[in-house]
Simulated scan of single mutants.
Amino acid sequence: MPQPIDDPNDRRMLLRYTGRCRLCGATLTAGTDAVYERNRRTVRCVECAPVVTPSADMSPVVNPAGAPSEDADVLRLRSPASSVIAEALRVQSSVPPRTGTQRFFGRSPLNVESRPWYLGALGELEVGRLLDQLGPEWFAFHAVPVGSAGSDVDHIVIGPGGVFTINSKFHEGGNVWVASRRLLVNGQRTDHLRNAEFEARRVAKLLTQAARRPVDVTPVIAIVAARRLTIRERPERVVVLAASQLPRWLQNRVAVLRVDEVAEVSRMAATPATWGQPNIPVADLAAFAELRSTVTAARNRRRSWALALMLSPLAMLATLTVGMLSLLR
């Protein structure tokens, strides 16, 4: 029998990741309409939980003028990496399909144009997953479009410890070196620090205008999948840390906002009008999950071929050794 949602922390949303219904065991792919049980960190399909009791996370959102917003849940329920995924799939759509031979040998379906977008999406998805570990007193908004030029903020996090912009940087296997005014990846200079600082100032300005009071914003760069992260000297205005450290770092911040202040700033952040006239692209999460599966399968096939080539000389040597021993008997 379908069960109502009686936990105020449960909320109906489009799933960001593939999951399984806790009650009936049905597989729920990314993008499926379902109920997220926040305290349990599990999901239920809508057939098992068709009745939704409004929760604090689903409270009406008002715009700066005080009128109810028609897009109250657009940003609250937005999946991490939505903008990057949409662009990755758009660029990937022009990539010619692989030939049978290319698939056999594990050639990646990505090309030089789509690969950076794909990797950027992986970084944002991982940070979004980590931010889901924060308690119910924290609010995280993902892929927040700002203005009409197509730019967005990877993550905006609001909680007792303050307001933060989180910039996800995926540097798989790379060496990241940080000083007070420089961030190098494999010895190459980047604009990560400057861009993160600019992003935080922009978000602070817009939230200040919407809330009609000063809102301080701290820029954070979350490094994903790097082989080594060396902090030679901490930057003065930007926090740089490994993504895995992010949830605990946020939860350990000294409280600077009251509960009502967190709620107020979160309402402003959830209102699209706060960010100008943004274009909010809808990401096809199922299509990206399929692309990700294809990329992973191709990588595994390449690794299998590399292992086979590495072992083949050993196999030949073993065969020769057995043959020589048989001749000596």
Results as ranks from 00 to 15, higher is better:
residue 197 E to Y: 11
residue 53 T to N: 14
residue 242 A to Y: 05
residue 142 H to V: 05
residue 61 V to I: 15
residue 248 R to C: 11
residue 150 G to L: 02
residue 85 I to S: 01
residue 136 P to A: 11
residue 205 K to H: 11
residue 220 V to Q: 04
residue 67 A to S: 05
residue 103 R to H: 03
residue 9 N to R: 14
residue 192 H to Y: 13
residue 270 A to M: 03
residue 16 R to L: 06
residue 251 Q to F: 03
residue 277 Q to Y: 13
residue 33 D to F: 12
residue 219 P to Y: 08
residue 151 S to P: 04
residue 63 N to R: 13
residue 98 R to N: 00
residue 74 V to E: 12
residue 73 D to P: 14
residue 39 N to A: 14
residue 160 P to N: 09
residue 238 V to A: 14
residue 63 N to A: 13
residue 103 R to N: 00
residue 227 R to D: 06
residue 126 E to N: 04
residue 305 W to D: 00
residue 209 Q to D: 11
residue 178 V to P: 13
residue 264 E to Q: 14
residue 156 I to S: 06
residue 262 V to G: 13
residue 291 L to C: 10
residue 61 V to Y: 07
residue 55 S to T: 15
residue 62 V to W: 05
residue 47 E to G: 06
residue 312 S to H: 01
residue 152 D to S: 15
residue 223 I to V: 14
residue 42 T to E: 15
residue 246 L to P: 13
residue 250 L to Y: 11
residue 72 A to W: 13
residue 106 G to F: 11
residue 14 L to W: 07
residue 119 L to G: 00
residue 265 V to N: 01
residue 284 D to V: 00
residue 251 Q to K: 13
residue 127 V to A: 10
residue 42 T to G: 06
residue 315 A to P: 02
residue 32 T to I: 02
residue 188 Q to D: 10
residue 268 M to Q: 12
residue 329 R to Q: 14
residue 301 R to T: 06
residue 105 F to L: 05
residue 12 R to P: 09
residue 317 L to N: 01
residue 264 E to I: 12
residue 140 A to Y: 12
residue 103 R to T: 00
residue 317 L to R: 05
residue 139 F to K: 14
residue 201 R to N: 12
residue 296 T to E: 14
residue 18 T to F: 03
residue 21 C to D: 04
residue 317 L to T: 12
residue 217 V to A: 07
residue 322 V to R: 01
residue 64 P to F: 01
residue 108 S to W: 04
residue 26 A to I: 02
residue 13 M to Q: 15
residue 76 R to G: 01
residue 64 P to E: 08
residue 132 D to T: 04
residue 106 G to D: 08
residue 94 S to H: 06
residue 230 T to K: 10
residue 108 S to L: 02
residue 65 A to Y: 05
residue 265 V to R: 07
residue 120 G to A: 06
residue 221 I to E: 00
residue 259 V to F: 15
residue 311 L to T: 13
residue 280 I to E: 06
residue 269 A to C: 03
residue 279 N to M: 09
residue 309 L to K: 13
residue 238 V to I: 08
residue 61 V to L: 02
residue 294 T to C: 07
residue 314 L to Y: 05
residue 280 I to T: 15
residue 286 A to L: 08
residue 262 V to Y: 08
residue 214 P to D: 07
residue 212 R to M: 02
residue 273 A to I: 04
residue 65 A to G: 05
residue 296 T to P: 07
residue 320 L to H: 05
residue 23 L to Q: 13
residue 284 D to I: 02
residue 49 A to E: 09
residue 108 S to P: 03
residue 48 C to A: 00
residue 249 W to M: 03
residue 272 P to H: 10
residue 165 T to Y: 10
residue 20 R to Q: 14
residue 213 R to N: 01
residue 12 R to K: 09
